[in-house]
Simulated scan of single mutants.
Amino acid sequence: MNDKSGATRRTVLTGLTGIAAAASIPLGATAASADVDAVDQPRVYACDEWGARPPDGTPVVVNSRPNKIIVHHTAFPNTTDFSLDYAFRNSRDIQDLHMDDNGWMDSGQHFTNSRGGHVTEGRHGSLSALLRGRTMIQGAHCVGQNSQAIGIENDGSYHLGAPVPQAQWNSLVQFCAFICQQYGVNPQEIYGHKDFNNTLCPGGLWNRLPELRAAVADALG
């Protein structure tokens, strides 16, 4: 299946589980709420910063806000390399897999969270849309949800009980809180891939979703 048919994440994981690259955009240029922001903008590395390939087509802009967040894991080996350089290489590997093996026009997920807690933009245009807080980019991470849910890949394999590194967890909490703030998403609307599709993804992260929702709500005040 391909993007146009609303395909799932990359095929290799299912058993286990015109807008350009967003440049750095000042925080506060636009926001979903007129209230004072409770959550600071985390550092998110745009596609051009990690060396993304150009998309094979123009990402589709959905002219409405997403109503949920969907958490994934990559099912890649649990590396002990927590560096930014590795996070960039991992983002390139995911994009190559999605484009070359799955035949998708770009990375399927909107964002990727490395085991070291480094967040990178996935599908081109996702960061720009998030910072504006009014539209979203159609993804290819979860069948039936690609036009209404922000997909976050968390690097690693958590279906066999491996612990989530604290840096990655902290980053996930902060980033989900920022997404909720920008788009007006209720923290209770944070789900795992397996809530919608037949997959083991996101492994043990799924069991921690109540904890994640509570931590995000707390971060939002």
Score class of each variant (00 low, 15 high):
Met1Leu: 11
Asp3Phe: 13
Lys4Asp: 15
Lys4Arg: 15
Gly6Arg: 00
Arg9Ser: 12
Arg9Glu: 10
Arg10Trp: 02
Thr11Phe: 12
Thr11Asp: 10
Leu13Ser: 10
Leu13Asp: 05
Thr14Cys: 04
Gly15Arg: 13
Thr17Val: 09
Ala22Leu: 02
Ser24Cys: 06
Ala29Asn: 07
Thr30Phe: 10
Ala31Lys: 08
Ser33Glu: 07
Asp35Val: 09
Asp37Arg: 14
Ala38Ser: 14
Arg43Asn: 04
Arg43Glu: 09
Val44Asp: 02
Ala46Ser: 12
Asp48His: 10
Arg53Ala: 15
Asp56Val: 12
Thr58Ser: 14
Pro59Met: 02
Pro66Val: 08
His72Arg: 03
His73Leu: 00
Thr80Cys: 01
Thr80His: 12
Ser83Gln: 12
Ser83Leu: 03
Leu84Lys: 13
Leu84Val: 09
Phe88Ala: 06
Phe88Leu: 02
Phe88Trp: 05
Ser91Ala: 10
Asp93Cys: 07
Gln95Trp: 13
His98Gln: 13
His98Arg: 08
Met99Ser: 05
Asp100Met: 08
Asp101Arg: 09
Gly103Met: 07
Gln109Met: 12
Thr112Met: 06
Arg115Thr: 07
Gly117Pro: 04
Thr120Leu: 11
Thr120Lys: 03
Thr120Pro: 06
Gly122Tyr: 09
Gly125Met: 06
Ser126Ile: 09
Ser126Phe: 00
Ile137Trp: 09
Gln138Val: 08
Ala140Ile: 06
Val143Arg: 11
Gln145Lys: 10
Ser147Glu: 15
Gln148Leu: 05
Ala149Pro: 03
Ser157Asn: 13
Val164Glu: 11
Leu172Ala: 14
Gln174Ala: 15
Gln174Phe: 04
Gln182Asp: 07
Asn186Phe: 07
Gln188Cys: 00
His193Trp: 02
Asp195His: 03
Thr199Met: 03
Gly203Ile: 01
Gly204Val: 00
Trp206Gln: 07
Asn207Lys: 13
Leu209Ile: 15
Ala215Lys: 10
Val216Phe: 02
Ala217Met: 07
